[in-house]
Design a protein around this nucleic acid. Structure first.
Lengths: 186, 186
DNA sequence: TTGCCCATGTAATTCGTTACATGATTTC
DNA sequence: GAAATCATGTAACGAATTACATGGGCAA
C-alpha cells in the first residue's frame, strides 16, 4: 500500500498532541488506532529518524523518572505545516483484505466443517473486538466533554462498533445458510 | 502484508475452475473478488511466471478467435495439491486500513466542513458499492443452484452488503453527531 | 484517425512484517 | 532470581502499487 505514507501522519498527529518516544507512539497506536491502522516498531523507529532528518520532528533525550533513557520527539512548525496540509487533502485510501473471504469464495474445495470452523473463529474473534470497542466507548463517553479530541476518538470507536457488528451478523447469516444446505438434518 | 501470499491462491483457485490468461484473471478478480482482495497486473503476471517455474501451472499459447495472442494457463496436479493444502489451513489474515478514520481521528485539526465532506464522500462511495453488491446478489440468486460455487460466491456478496451497510450507517451517525456539535443552528 | 479495449510484461519504489539483537528496570 | 515491561533499533524479505513500455484489433 504505497504512495503517501499514512503512518507518517499518524506519528505527526500524535506528536502534535504531546511529546512522545517511539515506544510511546507504538502504545498509543496499539490502544487507540490499531483497529483501523496498524504500525510496528520496524516502521515507527525508521520513520521517526526520517522525520527528524527532514526537520519535521525534533529529538531530545530524556532520563526523567528513574527509568531507562528515552528519545522524546516533538513536532516542529514544519511538521505541523505538513500535517495540516495532509489533513486538508480529501483523498481517502482504503485497503481491506480478508483472507477468510478468499477461502470462503473457494469454499467448494473445503469440507463443510472447514468452512464453518473458519466462520466460527472469525465470529469469535470479532465478538471479542466488539466487546473491546464497547468498553472503550463507555470509557470515552465519561470524558467526552473534557477535550475536543475525545469526540473524534469516539467517532472512530463508533466505526469499530458498526464494523464488528456487521462482521458478526454476516458470520451468523453465512453459518445459517451453510447449515441449511450441508448440515446434518437428523 | 507479507508471509504466505494470498494472491497466489486466488490465481490457483481461479485456474482450478477454468483455464485463463493473466488478463482474464485480472478481470475475474476485478469483478468478483476485488472488494475483499485486490490484485494488479504488476502482481499477476510475475506471479504466473513464478507459478509456472514451480510447476504449479502450465502455459500454452492460444490464438483462437481472431483476437491477439493469449497465454492460457492451466493448473497442474501439483498446483491443485498446493491449493488444497492452503484451503485446509485455518489461518485467516485480515488487513484493514482506513485513511478516513485516521483523518477523522485527528479531526480537531480540520474544519467542520472538511470533516463532513470527507464523511459524505465516504458515504456516497459506499452507497454505490452497496448498489453494486445488491445487483450482483440478485444476479447470483437467479443462478444459485446451477453450480455449487455460486453459493460460496453469494456468501462473499453477503459480506459486502453487510460491510457497506455498516459503512453507510456509521457515516450517517457520525455526520449527525458532528452536525449536532458544530453545525449551524439557525 | 482517434480512442478504446485486448493483451503482456518490466522496473522502481514503497510499505510493511518479521526476526534478530541488546540491555536496563521493575515486579513477583 | 525469573519474568515482564520498558526502550531502541537493524536487516532481510515480501507484498503491492505505480508508472512505463509496447503493440494489435475494432468501432465511431
Amino acid at each position: 500500500m504505497p504512495k503517501e505514507n499514512t503512518t507518517v501522519y499518524i506519528i505527526l498527529g500524535l506528536l502534535n498532541h504531546e511529546d512522545l518516544s517511539g515506544y510511546d507512539i507504538k502504545k498509543r497506536i496499539d490502544s487507540m488506532i490499531s483497529y483501523f491502522w496498524e504500525a510496528g516498531y520496524g516502521q515507527i523507529y525508521p520513520t521517526l529518524a526520517r522525520l527528524e532528518a527532514e526537520g519535521l520532528v525534533e529529538k531530545r533525550i530524556s532520563r526523567s523518572s528513574g527509568g531507562p533513557e528515552k528519545n522524546l520527539y516533538s513536532i516542529t512548525s514544519g511538521g505541523k505545516e505538513e500535517l495540516r496540509k495532509w489533513m486538508s487533502v480529501p483523498e481517502q485510501k482504503e485497503y481491506t483484505k480478508y483472507e477468510i473471504l478468499v477461502k470462503l469464495f473457494f469454499g467448494k474445495l473445503a469440507s463443510f466443517e472447514e468452512n464453518t470452523h473458519r466462520l466460527q473463529a472469525f465470529k469469535e474473534r470479532h465478538v471479542k473486538n466488539m466487546e473491546m470497542m464497547e468498553q472503550y466507548g463507555r470509557n470515552l463517553q465519561q470524558v467526552m466533554d473534557r477535550e475536543e479530541d475525545h469526540l473524534f476518538y469516539y467517532l472512530t470507536v463508533l466505526f469499530g462498533k458498526h464494523i464488528y457488528a456487521a462482521y458478526i451478523e454476516w458470520a451468523d447469516e453465512a453459518l445459517a445458510i451453510l447449515e441449511d444446505k450441508y448440515g446434518n438434518k437428523k
